[in-house]
Design a binder for these strands. Structure first.
Ligand SMILES: [Zn+2]
Ligand SMILES: [Zn+2]
Ligand SMILES: [Zn+2]
Ligand SMILES: [Zn+2]
Lengths: 337, 337
DNA sequence: GTCGGTTCAATCGGTTCA
DNA sequence: TGAACCGATTGAACCGAC
């Protein structure tokens, strides 16, 4: 089954850079034999492939990534950037090594962005789940009457937020077979079958795929995976369930507010305004307290909602997460510009 | 949030255009008319036909299918979507490559849905199976009469054995929550709660755990795993389903017999005796023709019943990437028994 | 022959740790 | 810092339905 002795590399050795580095006298055209073409274009060490656009050794590969990510200005301690870079001298002047990396054509764009790396890490971690999770306990500072307020808020939270999600079991679920969504036919006809209308709707939405797991009291497990198509309609079978979830969660948040004495003391119209403006966000917050970043899953008692997509790296909102300016998306994925 | 830039380079970026052409095998000019038909409309590489509606190379064909199925928003790490896509640069920027695929007219509708792929795979598998099955009875010296009998039996089988198991979708399933089995209360009281009676029942039975997978027509998947306890009761939630299955399968086997002329010619009491003695075994045989030893699964159309590995780590087939399909089940294919 | 999907060795990103 | 490693992506070769 093995074939192709890599004809693709044949041209490599013939490449001549226009810059004058003839001082190095390293034989670039050593590709006459198959064994000879594996030379690091930066330091002359044995190369093992193209890294960031240039045939380099492992050392220069790692050095380039680290140096570029560190993003600091390096200065040549010796001469103005004329240090010779060889296998033995490459560690002596980072500035000249990095300069030569760039001159050789290594591209910083090929270094994965922090966001991409983070996502990739999360994905890999998720793939080998079935791991125990670390307990993330957190301590609090101290204050005075603030503590009383905090206590009241926490009590309200405890009273009105059923973290076992025991009512969720009564909510509608996707049909097992014939997953014809149960939307009214009017909606079906207009929304689902008219491409124009549909694409209008999908214009600003992000693709998401959610699987659901239901754990029975006897230890049994039901697991639902949405259709694998990706036209945006894969969420539809879950809509009745999500509607029930929303209704229930809204009630919970409203009850939360009503339990807080300071809220009750507000004028009724202020109460309404507050609820109108914040209830949805409160629901999201409540859900996200159940989110497990390791597994990309909302653990809601006997229910679990899991991002199915391999690109579903999520983070808890609220946790400081400004690693880079290039990062946007707080917790929504697929944020294609 | 993009997945990862993911670029691969096969060349040194500083290759001068006019120089490079002399190094590479052939320039990709469109000078040849017939040759023009054979160039990839995306990257200019040698194309080998129309793929997803556009003349492309193998690489762009595979890239388009994978990128679309991954359903990830890609972001160009270089200049905003202006990367030139050539045979040598196509791996540098997935975003621009995919954009060019779409601009060239590649259609994602022509990518088979997961469900369609699954169906196709099953079909191919079945045909392979039939191929292996054919030789044994085939050809060799059989009398006319024997061949006619075989034909009648096979016709009867085809007529009365729905290998798509389309009716199974109507059968009862374990309750999602509160998996209180639906046995009559009398049985519940006596069987389930009296340890003595229960252990008497379990005395000779083998512990078995069966998970069930249901694949919706829209590609969605429901998956049921029985309770993890091993007291023998874990099968109980499935009993209603199994009862429906048995009833249906019994009818199928009885119909099979009734289609056979020689059977119809028997005295009625003999017919009854035969059915009493063999119907159950026939059902087992029919089921086992659907058994896949690799996965330990009975593949029954949109249903699948899988032996749960007592040690865990058993997974339902579905989107599973089966490593290789070298060995086929030994005893299923009419060969055994 | 065409054109879907599948396979799998090779390639090249990031990660680990001495 | 870099050798060894991990794992996602790629594409040539292939398979099979039509
Ligand atoms: Zn080097
Ligand atoms: Zn220097
Ligand atoms: Zn191409
Ligand atoms: Zn680009």
């Amino acid at each position: 089954l093995e074939m192709r002795p890599e004809e693709r590399w044949n041209h490599v050795g013939l490449v001549q850079r226009e810059e004058a580095d003839s001082v190095l006298e390293e034989p670039i055209n050593v590709d006459e034999e198959d064994g000879g073409l594996q030379i690091c274009r930066v330091c002359g060490d044995k190369a093992n492939g193209y890294h960031f656009n240039v045939m380099t050794c492992e050392g220069c590969k790692g050095f380039f990534r680290r140096a570029m990510k560190r993003n600091v200005r390096l200065r040549c301690p010796f001469r103005k950037g004329t240090c010779e870079i060889t296998r033995k001298t490459r560690r002596q002047c980072q500035a000249c090594r990095l300069r030569k990396c760039l001159e050789s054509g290594m591209k910083k764009e090929m270094i994965m962005s922090d966001a991409a790396v983070e996502q990739r890490r999360a994905l890999i971690k998720r793939k080998k789940r079935e791991k125990i999770e670390a307990p993330p306990p957190g301590g609090q500072g101290l204050t005075e009457e603030q503590q009383a307020l905090i206590q009241e808020l926490m009590d309200a939270q405890m009273q009105t937020f059923d973290t076992t999600f025991s009512h969720f079991k009564d909510f509608r679920l996707p049909a097992v077979f014939h997953s014809d969504c149960e939307l009214p036919e009017v909606l079906q006809a207009s929304l689902l079958e008219d491409p124009a209308t549909w694409s209008q709707i999908m214009k600003d939405s992000v693709p998401m795929k959610i699987s659901v797991q239901l754990r029975g009291e006897d230890g049994s497990i039901w697991n639902y995976q949405p259709p694998s198509k990706s036209d945006g309609k894969e969420i539809i079978p879950l809509l009745p369930h999500l509607a029930d979830v929303s209704t229930y969660m809204f009630k919970g948040v409203i009850n939360f507010a009503k339990v807080i004495s300071h809220f009750r003391e507000l004028p009724i119209e202020d109460q309404i305004s507050l609820l109108k403006g914040a209830t949805f966000e409160m629901c999201i917050l409540r859900f996200n307290t159940m989110f497990d970043t390791e597994t990309g899953t909302w653990e809601c008692g006997r229910l679990a909602y899991c991002f199915e997509d391999p690109n579903g790296a999520q983070e808890m909102p609220g946790r400081g997460r400004e690693g880079k300016s290039s990062v946007r998306d707080p917790w929504v994925l697929g944020a294609g510009s």
